[in-house]
Amino acid sequence: MRTLTGRAGRAGPPRAVAEGYRAGRTLPVRVELIRQLKRRRTLVMGGILFALPFVLLIAFAVGGEPEGRAGQVSLMDSATASGANFAAVTLFASAGFLLVVPVALFCGDTVASEAGWSSLRYLLAAPVPRARLLLSKLAVGLGLSLAAIVLLPLVALAVGTAAYGWGPLELPTGGTLPTDTAAARLALTVAYVFVSQLVTAALAFWLSTRTDAPLGAVGGAVGLTIIGNVLDEVTALGDWRSFLPAHWQYAWLDAVQPQLDLTRMIQGTSLSVTYALVLLALAFRGFARKDVVS
């Protein structure tokens, strides 16, 4: 038998542990992933994202050719030009709010739901080290968020190609991108959308470690993201808006231009990663000192 000291932040008598115990082998990511995949909210959210391109396809079939605002040319005008255009439009229509929901759900529900079920204390008594528990849950939450963000444009690309054919990406400013270039640009767009959502993911995860109510963590992350979007529309804030993650969420539109310009996407990525790292550090630090009674 070996001994294990008390939990972080408190002195305590050594505890006996079984031979062969390895902290790094507790709560494997594979086990946590299977648990989360079997949950009803995961299946429902996946079904919604899978169905959205079909909803847009029906809307275009019923309403006719999409039209932009008077005097303005937008990506929406070319939605039915090809499968690539349809995928880009689907991403444009959902990136502002819809994709925030699965990210907040998968990252905000993960720890708080265990507390709500009164199973968190039993996981820690297994014993699963606190940092290990958070790492496993964060990895699965981010993995499911990435899967959600990838699923939507992939289904849209397949649906759009079946309905409108496979062809080049028609740009709103004129000109086209060849199919291979268009595919690479769409992949870059999806990657940037995921990175831009890291702030929401980290915020939801931090709130999940602070509350026993999953709805509070998920709703808080979504609500604060919406507030950020509203503040970004306040032009009176001037240059202060550049410190808001929402200010850079559509920087990926630079990827659907004739000449690729990564400047704004790099700025948005730097801001998003910085905020995310700070929030995750707060989550790990706070949870290490938290008295878990649920």
Rank of each mutant, 00 (worst) to 15 (best):
A93R: 03
A93W: 07
A93M: 12
S94R: 00
A95P: 06
A95G: 04
A95S: 13
A95T: 15
A95I: 11
G96R: 00
G96L: 04
G96F: 00
F97T: 05
L98Y: 02
L98N: 00
L99R: 12
L99T: 15
V100M: 09
V100N: 06
V100T: 14
V101Y: 03
V101M: 14
P102K: 05
P102Q: 08
V103W: 08
V103T: 15
V103G: 06
A104F: 10
A104E: 14
L105T: 14
L105H: 07
L105G: 11
F106D: 03
F106L: 13
C107Q: 01
C107M: 05
C107T: 15
C107G: 03
C107K: 00
C107D: 03
C107N: 11
G108E: 02
G108W: 09
G108F: 01
G108C: 02
G108N: 09
T110Q: 01
T110P: 01
T110E: 07
T110F: 03
V111H: 08
V111I: 15
V111S: 08
V111E: 09
V111Y: 13
A112D: 10
A112K: 11
S113Q: 14
E114Q: 11
E114S: 07
A115R: 15
A115W: 06
A115T: 04
G116T: 07
G116V: 07
W117C: 01
W117H: 13
S118D: 14
S118R: 14
S118A: 12
S118G: 12
S118M: 08
S119A: 14
L120C: 05
L120V: 05
L120F: 00
L120W: 08
L120D: 09
R121H: 14
Y122I: 02
Y122M: 08
Y122W: 10
L123D: 08
L123M: 13
L123C: 07
L123R: 01
L123K: 01
L123V: 13
L124W: 11
L124A: 10
L124Q: 08
A125F: 00
A125E: 05
A125C: 05
A125M: 04
A125P: 10
A126Q: 14
A126H: 12
A126R: 13
A126V: 06
P127D: 08
P127A: 10
P127F: 02
P127Q: 11
P127Y: 09
V128T: 15
V128C: 12
V128A: 10
V128F: 11
P129Y: 01
